[in-house]
């Protein structure tokens, strides 16, 4: 399992290829990349704050839980913090398994938990003002299915 918290950009394609190489023999690799969106064209920047120390621990706990639930040959989580702009990659998750269903489900589980259990907070700077992105009830409800 690899977890990286960083301000720098990353090359999702290169990361995925390297991850696939380390999971040789797995047979199934699933990945998700989150990108900063600009819904109405007014986004100037997005600032992501996190809780150094707790972030790493919380993600390690989430990945460990995924490893107990599914047959995983590997898992990768990269999450950025700092100032990003529209189109920038925020984060990526990749899972590898001998079974396609395990890889898909584990990736979804990781995404659902990263959204509401990893200590990150997003602030949007727009042309009409700045505001913290509010957690959505659907995100919390998404945890119930696991």
């Amino acid at each position: 399992m690899t977890v990286r918290i960083q301000t720098e950009s990353f090359d999702a394609g290169a990361e995925l290829n390297a991850f696939t190489d380390t999971a040789a023999g797995a047979g199934a690799v699933v990945s998700f990349t989150g990108v900063v969106r600009d819904v109405d064209g007014s986004l100037v920047a997005m600032e992501i704050e996190h809780y150094p120390g707790m972030t790493e621990k919380a993600i390690a706990t989430i990945v460990s839980e995924a490893q107990t639930r599914w047959d995983l040959a590997g898992a990768l989580v990269i999450h950025r913090h700092g100032r990003l702009t529209a189109g920038d990659q925020i984060m990526m998750v990749a899972t590898a398994s001998r079974h396609r269903v395990d890889a898909f489900q584990a990736a979804e589980f990781l995404m659902d938990y990263l959204k509401s259990r990893a200590p990150f907070w997003k602030k949007e700077m727009t042309q009409s003002g700045n505001g913290w992105v509010e957690a959505r009830d659907e995100d919390e409800a998404a945890l119930d299915r696991w």
Partner: peptide, 10 residues
């Protein structure tokens, strides 16, 4: 001890 709003990662 840390206080914060609900998290918005991902």
């Amino acid at each position: 001890v840390a206080f914060f709003p609900p998290m918005t990662g991902g």
